[in-house]
Amino acid sequence: MALNTPQITPTKKITVRAIGEELPRGDYQRCPQCDMLFSLPEINSHQSAYCPRCQAKIRDGRDWSLTRLAAMAFTMLLLMPFAWGEPLLHIWLLGIRIDANVMQGIWQMTKQGDAITGSMVFFCVIGAPLILVTSIAYLWFGNRLGMNLRPVLLMLERLKEWVMLDIYLVGIGVASIKVQDYAHIQAGVGLFSFVALVILTTVTLSHLNVEELWERFYPQRPATRRDEKLRVCLGCHFTGYPDQRGRCPRCHIPLRLRRRHSLQKCWAALLASIVLLLPANLLPISIIYLNGGRQEDTILSGIMSLASSNIAVAGIVFIASILVPFTKVIVMFTLLLSIHFKCQQGLRTRILLLRMVTWIGRWSMLDLFVISLTMSLINRDQILAFTMGPAAFYFGAAVILTILAVEWLDSRLLWDAHESGNARFDD
């Protein structure tokens, strides 16, 4: 018995066209964080690309023209004298008006014999932002004059995390709450300039795509075929072959399989920071003279006294001054041990922890910024005066060393310790 099946006739004509040209192939790229070699397709503007294995951002879609970056830099340069030299806060102490600005706080630190601690604050609040705007201006002028731009481009990517104007702005709020127990506070004209400078700096850093600047100024022929001998440069993120001198053909720094002496430098910085954190938390970090009496505060006791007036601000200072430094030390110690013992479990967790400490590390400088600003506000000789204690130097040095330890660690070593050939990683 035959089955009668109805015929289905399409209502619209289906047209099949042959592909007349070869589909576009992607360029081969190595991930600078996990060293995976993959094919990167062509990316349009405002599109980002991520590593298929570790999800690290390979290409950032946010990109401004150099002219727009230069305009932002010149605007920031105009704001800087007002943000640093004009009063941020006014207080009335014992019937006398006192003005506080950024430069005055750094000068008070240096004047009291601790120039190293003052230079830490100076670099993060004044030096690094000033280098940022002058570097962008150098790129703008240098591109037109045919100057060598490689050193500036190499420095810009590392400079971003040292620009800490946003953290200093939080420190202004913390210092205001600490001082309000002794005097009446009012915002100064410099505060508005400083807030504007923070906003412009944040926007500029978020749109400063150094890798795209490398592509514009020093374009290189990408690798179009897969080759395990391809290496990625950690300076400019170019994937290719080393030249005859073993250097990256684009930025001219040595092109090595792994960062040289990464573990040794990381261990040295980490152990030194552990040693410095002990006096930083045991010795007094601030000293207040009130009517001839002397009151010393460690980091913890200062947080407890701050909690009596504002528990939320005390929580912020606790996280930045105690929780973050010790968390960074514990995480980095764990990561280094996992590399030495070739741990194969929990790779995803370790990668996330490394990215976390990379982002939060700079916030530990908050305590030094609060001390710097408070020193310029309260300084009335023996009637009422505020000065920093010996722990300030140890704390600042420990924070900087932990930042350097994270920067010096080559994250690809975590993958080397893991089993080879993993296309995915999980716990």
Rank of each mutant, 00 (worst) to 15 (best):
217 F>T: 12
121 V>S: 03
333 F>C: 15
332 M>R: 00
28 Y>S: 15
364 S>P: 00
389 G>P: 01
270 L>R: 02
26 G>M: 12
30 R>Y: 04
418 H>W: 09
7 Q>C: 10
370 V>C: 07
322 I>P: 01
21 E>G: 11
42 E>W: 08
108 Q>M: 15
226 R>E: 04
254 P>E: 03
402 T>P: 05
2 A>F: 05
44 N>E: 09
370 V>I: 07
226 R>T: 08
317 V>G: 02
260 R>N: 13
23 L>Y: 11
49 A>R: 06
262 S>W: 12
352 L>D: 07
277 L>G: 07
412 R>A: 01
213 L>S: 12
278 L>H: 07
232 V>S: 13
361 G>M: 02
39 S>E: 10
135 S>L: 03
56 A>D: 10
80 M>T: 13
247 R>I: 04
334 T>F: 15
27 D>P: 15
424 R>Y: 13
248 C>P: 00
251 C>F: 00
107 W>G: 15
264 Q>V: 02
399 V>P: 05
358 T>L: 11
256 R>I: 09
407 E>G: 11
401 L>V: 11
369 F>G: 04
309 S>P: 06
309 S>F: 05
238 F>A: 06
68 R>T: 01
395 F>P: 00
311 I>F: 09
351 I>K: 11
381 D>P: 06
336 L>C: 10
92 W>F: 07
192 F>W: 12
23 L>Q: 07
146 G>P: 05
219 P>R: 12
118 G>S: 05
328 K>G: 00
41 P>T: 12
409 L>S: 08
55 Q>R: 09
31 C>R: 00
252 H>N: 03
199 I>V: 10
103 M>C: 08
89 L>E: 08
384 L>R: 01
9 T>I: 15
391 A>Q: 02
8 I>D: 13
130 L>I: 08
422 N>I: 13
308 S>A: 09
315 G>M: 07
18 A>V: 15
336 L>Q: 10
124 C>I: 04
248 C>Y: 00
180 Q>E: 12
189 V>P: 11
135 S>G: 09
115 A>C: 05
339 I>T: 11
277 L>S: 12
275 V>M: 11
320 A>Q: 00
324 V>W: 15
422 N>Y: 13
127 G>F: 01
414 L>A: 09
375 M>T: 14
256 R>C: 08
241 Y>H: 15
191 L>V: 10
44 N>K: 15
380 R>C: 02
344 Q>W: 14
305 S>R: 05
14 I>D: 08
406 V>Y: 11
19 I>Y: 07
98 I>A: 07
67 T>D: 14
327 T>M: 10
360 I>V: 11
183 A>Q: 01
131 I>R: 00
370 V>S: 01
194 F>V: 10
199 I>R: 01
280 A>C: 08
305 S>H: 06
361 G>I: 03
359 W>I: 15
198 V>W: 15
8 I>C: 10
256 R>G: 05
416 D>W: 10
147 M>D: 01
71 A>F: 06
285 I>Y: 00
193 S>A: 14
345 Q>H: 11
233 C>A: 00
71 A>N: 04
315 G>R: 14
141 F>C: 06
273 S>K: 04
234 L>T: 07
359 W>D: 08
123 F>R: 00
9 T>W: 09
319 I>V: 09
103 M>G: 03
228 E>W: 07
211 E>Q: 12
31 C>A: 00
336 L>P: 04
21 E>R: 10
316 I>W: 13
67 T>V: 14
144 R>Q: 13
309 S>D: 08
417 A>T: 07
324 V>M: 15
413 L>S: 07
70 A>R: 09
166 D>P: 15
389 G>N: 01
109 M>P: 01
165 L>F: 07
303 I>M: 06
227 D>E: 11
198 V>R: 14
334 T>C: 09
76 M>G: 04
